[in-house]
């Protein structure tokens, strides 16, 4: 980081937070503090929804994933537009008419208090676990790449987030998100342009795309179906739809974004903007990773991008032959890439196929030697399942990008961390106060009292996230498990909301039992099968529906399991 980088970084972050706090003046009632007085325009909600979903790891990891595995991760988002249509058509009007602060408050209006309490607790458990990781994951990467002390980074980021979230409530969060997305878009565009400019003179943009494709890095659509494969067209369309229905329809960190809308139409527009913009945005991020891959065809990359681990295994005797093989494979690949471009321009299909074979063989050898180095990391006491994916993009940025742009990219990473974290902390505080404190501990206090309780809850969850992040390193490989935990809880929540919207005669006890059964089914699937986690939400939802409808029929007769007619729409609570 050079002086110009620090100037860009600090100026970006200070202006974001100052603008957020300026726009949040007057958040002095619970309604304004938690729902912005339902005054938000669609574009602010749309960018806030996008910013809350895009954490730092989205940018760090997605570019790295494209570098090592190509662009097929984009298929994960194919279900998002379908989910957004369902939520815009069904969920938004129900929540708006019900005048709720949280999604789980609606469950009591529709079912009963125990179903609301279970929904709230599932959300607090799941989102509470990820709140610390949202701050910890980028701090870990920045500590390796830039040498920043991990704990200092988590405390600085956490304190900043808590300050503006606690002072300004959801208005500060939303308007900061708008600014953060502006910085993120600018950073991404400048990164891509810079990568392309840094390519050798003899390699045009068309050649770069051709080379990335020949190495399998532009595999945006895979049509083969496989239950165990996370990313193909079918898992994206079907599994992804269920996942995004759960995330945008049942997770308070997203629901609260569109509950702040001026009207149903404004909230719908904010969701449909994401339905249209999210896939191209992810494609763009993945494409940056593919271009970084092409850049490293002509500039030798390290065997592993995680410098600390590379230095550690570098001293071991077993590493020398791996490094030698890697060096040879890199030279072979560079020569093959240049020959392939030449053959491609010559228009000789036979020569092109021959060079393509040599190019792919060299790439395979590079993948093999990198894999051997990663295994050596594990074998010599490193973390189990070691991968350097999260370090690829930032290694490239800090080593090759010019002064000022490095600062901008680091600002993108920190802005994404803060926008995701502020949304989580804000929603955790809202559910804690509205669904638990106000409902069970202090029912008839003044608005001023609940406003103060909301600020205290924000401070509590912010401090919790920072403390969790501080101890996350000691959790070791549990981090991986905790990340997976997110997908373990959504399915049963989704099933409960589908019951609420689509089966107007099903009652609370059946829904409650269905949620318990759905959760058990997801945990069983995760423990005893190899089915990819992308399918858990659909499985959990199906078990909730089957169980609740069976109980409902047994208790109240077959008519109780009749779905709502498409004309009447979901039931509106009184």
């Amino acid at each position: 980081m050079r002086p110009l980088d620090w100037i860009v970084l600090v100026a970006s972050l200070v202006s974001i937070i100052a603008y957020g706090l300026y726009r949040s003046r007057g958040s002095n009632t619970v309604d304004r503090y938690l729902l912005a007085g339902k005054s938000m325009p669609w574009y602010a909600m749309a960018l806030s929804i996008m910013a809350t979903q895009a954490s730092a790891i989205t940018f760090i990891s997605t570019t790295g994933q494209s570098y090592v595995d190509g662009m097929r991760f984009v298929q994960f988002y194919f279900g998002l537009p379908l989910a957004m249509i369902v939520i815009a058509a069904v969920v938004v009007p129900v929540f708006h008419h019900a005048r709720v602060y949280t999604a789980y408050e609606y469950l009591e209006k529709r079912f009963d208090s125990k179903t609301r309490a279970l929904g709230s607790l599932i959300f607090l458990a799941q989102r509470g676990l990820s709140a610390g990781l949202t701050i910890y994951a980028p701090a870990l990467v920045l500590s390796v790449i830039l040498g920043w002390p991990e704990r200092l980074t988590t405390v600085c980021v956490g304190a900043t987030v808590v300050t503006y979230t606690m002072l300004g409530g959801i208005k500060a969060v939303t308007w900061s998100d708008v600014q953060q997305m502006a910085v993120i878009f600018a950073g991404l565009v400048i990164s891509l342009v810079t990568v392309i400019v840094l390519l050798p003179q003899s390699v045009s943009f068309g050649d770069a795309v051709y080379l990335a494709g020949a190495a399998g890095r532009l595999n945006a659509v895979t049509t083969t179906f496989d239950w165990n494969d996370r990313f193909n067209l079918w898992s994206g369309l079907f599994g992804g739809t269920f996942l995004f229905l759960s995330y945008f329809g049942c997770d308070q960190s997203q629901v609260q974004r569109y509950l702040t809308g001026k009207s149903i139409a404004q909230s719908r527009l904010s969701l449909l903007f994401n339905a249209v913009a999210k896939i191209p945005m992810q494609f763009f991020i993945l494409f940056i990773g593919a271009m970084v891959f092409v850049f490293y065809l002509f500039v030798q990359p390290p065997v592993l991008f995680q410098r600390a681990e590379l230095a550690r295994i570098g001293a071991r005797g077993e590493f020398a032959p791996i490094a030698g093989q890697y060096q040879q494979a890199y030279e072979d690949r560079r020569r093959a890439a240049l020959a392939l471009v030449e053959a491609h321009h010559s228009g000789d299909p036979a020569a092109e196929e021959r060079q393509k074979g040599a190019y792919r063989a060299a790439q395979k050898e590079i993948d093999r030697t990198r894999s051997a180095a990663a295994q050596l990391v594990e074998k010599s006491g490193g973390e189990a399942g070691f991968t350097d994916t999260n370090y690829i993009f930032l290694s490239f940025v800090t080593r090759y990008l010019p002064a000022g742009i490095v600062g901008l990219v680091i600002a993108v990473i920190l802005a994404a961390t803060m926008s995701a974290s502020s949304g989580e902390i804000n929603s955790l505080a809202t559910v804690s106060v509205i669904d638990l404190y106000q409902r069970y501990l202090k029912r008839d206090a003044s608005d001023r009292h609940y406003l103060m309780a909301s600020r205290c809850a924000t401070l509590f969850w912010g401090a919790y996230a920072v403390l969790f992040a501080g101890y996350a390193r000691r959790l070791g490989s549990l981090i991986v498990a905790v990340n997976k935990v997110g997908s373990l809880f959504y399915g049963s929540l989704l099933g409960c909301f589908v019951l609420a919207f689509a089966f107007p005669r099903v009652k609370g006890t059946a829904a409650f039992a269905g949620m318990i059964a759905g959760e058990a089914a997801i945990l069983w699937t995760a423990e005893y099968t190899n089915i990819s986690w992308l399918w858990y939400n659909g499985i959990g939802c199906a078990v909730v529906l089957a169980t609740a409808l069976a109980i409902s029929v047994a208790r109240d007769g077959a008519a109780s399991a009749r779905p709502a007619s498409p004309r009447s729409g979901p039931p509106q609570p009184a």
């Binding site: 379908l82 058509a89 494709g213 945006a220 249209v276």
Partner: peptide, 27 residues
């Protein structure tokens, strides 16, 4: 809104078809 939802579905179909052709063109 029905027309808006239909437009989003058509958009998704076009995007997937575009990505599919992109993948085939550059593999």
């Amino acid at each position: 809104w029905r027309k808006v939802y239909q437009a989003v579905i058509v958009y998704l179909a076009v995007v997937i078809a575009g990505f599919y052709l992109f993948t085939r063109a550059y593999r």
